[in-house]
Simulated scan of single mutants.
Amino acid sequence: MPLAIYVFSLCTFAFGLSEFVVAGLVSAMADDLSSSVAAVGAAIAAYALGAAIGAPLLTAALASWHDRSLMLLTVAALGVGSLLLASVEQVLTLHLVRFGTGLAHGVFMAVAASVAVKLVAPAQAGRALSVVWMGLTVSLALGVPLGTLLGSFWSWRVIFVALALLGCLSLIGLLRWMPVQAGAVAAQPGAGLSGLRAVLLRPLLSVAVVSMLVSVAVFSFFSYVSPYLLEVSQAGPRLLSAGMLLFGACTIAGNLVGGYAGDRFAINRCLLLALLMLVVTLMLLYVFRQSPWAVLGLVGVLGAVFFAIVTLSTLRLLNLAKSVAPLASGVASGLNIAAFNLGTALGGGLGGLLIGQLGLAWLPLAGVGAGLLAIAVLLSQTPADVPYEAETQR
């Protein structure tokens, strides 16, 4: 595996930490900025909105740029944005900087996934993607809990200074190990216009819908996993912390399994199996809702299945893009990232609505419904993915 791909993983770790660490620092930031928890918490949504816009639209608009230049620019934006956050004094400024950093996040994730599969042999594409996403999963499993701990006992501003330094390190890594020729495919006449058109291509959008529904299914439950464990399952704070750590750790395993399966087996079949496992897991979370240890284990399974689907769906969209939008593979990857971010927001809203109408205990069933709908959409589609080996023989 080229060293550049491991550098991409370091970059995704930095971006993942930038996105998620605020969730653990909301209270400390609200006290320091003399603002409400709700106002500071909205900075999470501002970042997700930027990522959802940046991933498909900004990536499409900049499709004529060299991939290397785009990745350097977005990592530099992460570093600058982190320094600005470390010195911010007003909530409005906080939201604006978070939105801008989210734009950079979306573009980087889209381009990095696209470039990773170009740098390896077709039979290693899934594993290359899993290495790229590894940084994101490690940020969830280790980076966010550690950053939350340090930010709570020291200063939340120090965390963003550290992120700026991490961004600088990532920038040096890209300059040193990313091949200059990696951007040759993207930098063609008409690539920008082709990229913008690709956002509206029905085959790509239909595949992205599955990703969105998966995210709705997961986050309609996981957005409220804390009150679910504490109030429905009657778990204590320690078990809740264990659940969060287990979810993050299992995302690493799921990511690796998804990459391996995508290289060895038909992607549509793997994705269908993963979706069935997702539905079963959410159903069991409802059935065993009053058993804290069972819910704890199922939260871990949920993290593994979710990130296996993330890797498989990204590989599936990149496969399809090779046929319908060869100049816009980064846009295809970006659509997937945007779909997951949009699904995260919709899932949180759906979960909140369900809590208000029926109560916390019914949360997993909302995910079951979204998961079944994702399966129906997948089965209604013409098989969009062809094994890389078969594509190579064409």
Rank of each mutant, 00 (worst) to 15 (best):
V216S: 09
A304M: 12
G151T: 02
L72R: 08
G348F: 03
Y224C: 02
A253F: 14
N319W: 05
A60F: 02
G343E: 02
P227E: 02
G297N: 09
L73Y: 11
I172T: 14
M283P: 04
A191R: 03
L273C: 09
F99C: 14
V377I: 12
G297K: 01
A4G: 01
V225Y: 08
S36N: 00
G297D: 03
A361V: 06
G303T: 04
W154D: 14
P326Q: 03
G359I: 00
A113N: 15
G135T: 01
A104L: 10
L256C: 06
V280A: 12
A77P: 01
L320W: 00
L96A: 15
P56A: 06
L312E: 11
A266F: 05
G347H: 06
V26R: 09
Y286M: 02
G258I: 03
D32A: 13
V131C: 10
W362V: 03
F221W: 07
A253T: 13
T344M: 07
G50S: 04
V144C: 04
L129T: 04
L146H: 02
A184F: 10
A42E: 12
P56M: 13
G41N: 05
G183A: 11
A198C: 06
A55M: 07
T148K: 11
A30G: 02
L213S: 14
L272D: 12
L205P: 00
L58V: 15
L57I: 14
G236L: 09
L246G: 04
R394Y: 11
G50T: 06
R68I: 03
G369T: 05
M212C: 15
A43T: 13
E389Y: 07
P203A: 08
V295N: 08
L272H: 12
L10K: 07
G79E: 13
V21Q: 01
E231T: 08
W362Y: 15
E391A: 08
A374L: 07
G254Q: 09
W65V: 12
S114T: 01
L85V: 13
S34N: 11
L282Y: 04
W177Y: 15
L149V: 00
S36F: 03
I5G: 07
L193S: 14
P122R: 00
L33K: 05
G359P: 07
E391K: 06
E391F: 10
A51T: 15
G143H: 12
L25F: 07
L315Q: 12
G356I: 01
S206V: 04
L73M: 14
A294F: 07
F307D: 04
A361N: 06
I172E: 00
F153R: 15
A366H: 02
S114I: 05
